[in-house]
Design a protein around this nucleic acid. Structure first.
Length: 572
RNA sequence: CGGAGCGUAGCGCAGCCUGGUAGCGCGUCUGGUUCGGGACCAGAAGGUCGAGGGUUCAAUUCCCUCCGCUCCGACCA
């Protein structure tokens, strides 16, 4: 491809819309253009890179035995009613009506459609296991689209779904996908880390996310350097030492005017935040429930929701708090509360703590949780962070940030029940299929690659996903000898199956060098009158400063060798 | 959904406070000089100043409404 015949414009300045480096580079290098918030057009170079990522995903899915299909993006909302997700997924879904006033949705994901499909197609254990996948545009009405392709309203996702006869068989399918994901991200040149994850609205029992570590990532990851335990902060657990609190005097009320927050209390009582028990009143599917965490910790709402098997968990409003505790916000406590009370496991045996008194401007001291309050259960409720100890090995963990590029779930029978996806077993019994689902954000992966691989001058594409493998700079387009060399090289490289992008613009060399660095193809070949006079073309990797002067007749061989080396390094 | 900020040429921005019909850099086009890490000179094209309304002799500028975008937050008691 020739620059002068390609719709590409590089920008000198960072676009005003972009915040993180990968987003800036994608726009500056002319890979994407914004249509509206969360909506982007892929320009020729961006599309080529995207297609390379897609192709890697496709090859690895096929290798893992999955079959490619393509389901409609437009779906009847009735399907979502059937799974019960019209309510839970609700606001995140684009909805519309057709001319017959039927409620439709633009698919944010395809569990419903695929389960309905498979329920109709598969009736015998002989047809199982079965894994299907598609690479398709998804739609989500994000509250706040941001970071370019990272969180967009429309994005491309590879979603795969496995169907099996048993939990054990489903584990095999899950494992196959997990391994395919490791291969996919390796081939993309990405360092992606599997971590234990929360299942969210998708549901199911178990899941792993594949995370690209990056400071700009939207997820927190708790990581144990000692034993390798890693989990999304939404799910991460910690080891808790048993308390050995001594017995304490009976409870006593203390006036605490306007001391509503832990900070206020710390100032008032002049002691550490951990001496307080924070009482949070929540509405869990509409019913009030209290959660207790140490004053220096925060409640993990994901865990709380999972624990209570709830659809919706939200902090109670002021009126509810007044009704339930008899006090305004800021003075709730577990003593005498008539609603279910869940306490963090670290509070088991807690004694001589301070809590709200369920009375305005009052707290109580000397609270022994077992003695003075009724706790429904002690569970893991807090957000785990840096310096917490590993639940497996007890060593201190670290907190990192990551970009979620893939997610694998063991769904069990959640959807196959809703859609009665059953098969006849070898014993002639009708059984529910066991399901798994597996997503990769293809467009997000593309951007994550850039986030992880760039320098001050621009993108550094891994050879496997670069829009072009070789940037061939024609420095003197008006010099017939140089042009002839470029023509020859271009054809010879193409004949070897090596993508080459020729910068044939009438620009000064400096401009071409800058743009080549910005666009970031892994190999740069410079053909100029000066170089030819010295004996050849210059061949250089994007990652190195130095170049080799290679005689024209040896150039294709030399470049092929570099491509092989780069590819081998990725597949290592 | 709440808060803040922004919206002026393809891109990045100034002008607005203190009203008088718009400017800079980059990019684009023409000509010339240049030519190995984002050249220089001369000239040119390109703007309903986000939209609508109001105040005024006069609005990019002041006021109101709406739309769009960006950032922060979404009640942790």
């Amino acid at each position: 491809m020739r620059w002068t015949r390609t719709l590409i414009a590089t920008l000198r300045d960072d676009p005003q819309e972009a915040e993180i480096v990968s987003h800036k580079l994608m726009v500056r290098a002319g890979l994407i253009r914004r249509l509206a918030g969360g909506l982007y057009t892929f320009m020729p170079l961006g599309l080529r890179a995207l297609q390379k990522v897609s192709q890697i995903v496709r090859e690895e899915m096929d290798r893992a035995g999955a079959q490619e299909i393509l389901m409609p993006a437009l779906q009847p909302a009735e399907l979502w009613e059937r799974s019960g997700r019209l309510a839970t997924m609700g606001p995140g879904m684009f909805r519309l009506k057709d001319r017959a006033e039927r409620l439709m949705a633009l698919g944010p994901t395809h569990e419903e459609v695929v389960t309905q499909l498979i329920a109709g197609e598969i009736n015998s254990y002989r047809q199982l296991p079965c894994t299907v996948y598609q690479i398709q545009t998804k739609f989500r009405d994000e509250i706040r689209p941001r970071f370019g392709l990272m969180r967009a309203k429309e994005f491309i996702m590879k979603d795969a779904y496995s169907f099996d006869t048993s939990l054990e068989a489903a584990d095999v399918s899950y494992q196959a996908m997990y391994e395919a994901y490791v291969r996919i991200f390796n081939r993309c040149g990405l360092s992606a880390r599997p971590v234990e994850a929360d299942t969210g609205d998708i549901g199911g029992k178990w899941s792993h996310e594949f995370m690209v570590l990056a400071d700009s990532g939207e997820d927190g990851i708790v990581d144990c350097p000692a034993c390798g335990y890693a989990a999304n902060q939404e799910r991460a657990e910690r080891a808790v030492a048993a308390l050995a609190d001594a017995a304490c005097p009976p409870v006593a009320e203390v006036a605490t005017p306007n001391a509503r927050t832990i900070d206020d209390l710390v100032a008032h009582f002049q002691c550490g935040a951990e001496r307080f028990i924070k009482t949070l009143v929540y509405l869990v599917d509409g019913k009030p429930v209290a959660a207790l965490v140490p004053g220096n910790r925060d409640l993990n709402e994901h865990k709380f929701k999972r624990l209570l098997n709830a659809k919706k968990v939200e902090l109670a409003d002021e009126a509810t708090i007044l009704k339930v505790t008899g006090a305004p916000v800021g003075f709730a406590g577990p003593v005498g509360l008539a609603i279910p009370v869940y306490a963090d496991q670290s509070l088991k045996g807690a004694s001589d703590r301070t809590t709200g008194a369920n009375r305005a401007d009052t707290h109580i001291v000397h609270v022994d949780l077992a003695r003075d309050a009724t706790v429904t259960a002690f569970e893991d409720l807090v957000i785990v962070g840096a310096d917490d100890t590993c639940p497996h090995c007890g060593k201190v963990m670290q907190l990192k940030r990551g970009i979620e590029v893939g997610h694998v779930f063991k769904l069990g029978t959640k959807y196959t029940e809703s859609f009665e996806a059953k098969y006849l077993s070898d014993k002639g019994q009708s059984e529910l299929m066991v399901m798994g689902c597996y997503g990769i954000g293809v467009t997000r992966t593309l951007q994550a690659i850039i986030e992880q691989s760039h320098d001050a001058d621009g993108i550094i594409w891994p050879v496997s996903v670069a829009p072009f493998t070789v940037s061939l700079l024609l420095l003197d387009p008006k010099d017939p000898a140089v042009s002839a060399v470029v023509d020859t090289l271009e054809k010879a490289l193409q004949a070897r199956g090596i993508d080459v992008f020729v910068d044939d613009r009438e620009e000064r060399p400096g401009v071409k060098f800058k743009d080549a660095d910005l666009i970031g193809c892994p190999i740069r070949v410079v053909a100029g009158a000066k170089g030819l006079a010295k004996g050849g073309v210059e061949v250089k990797l994007r990652t190195s400063k130095a170049f080799d002067l290679v005689p024209v007749e040896d150039a294709v061989t030399a470049i092929s060798k570099l491509v092989e080396d780069l590819t081998a390094a990725l597949n290592r």
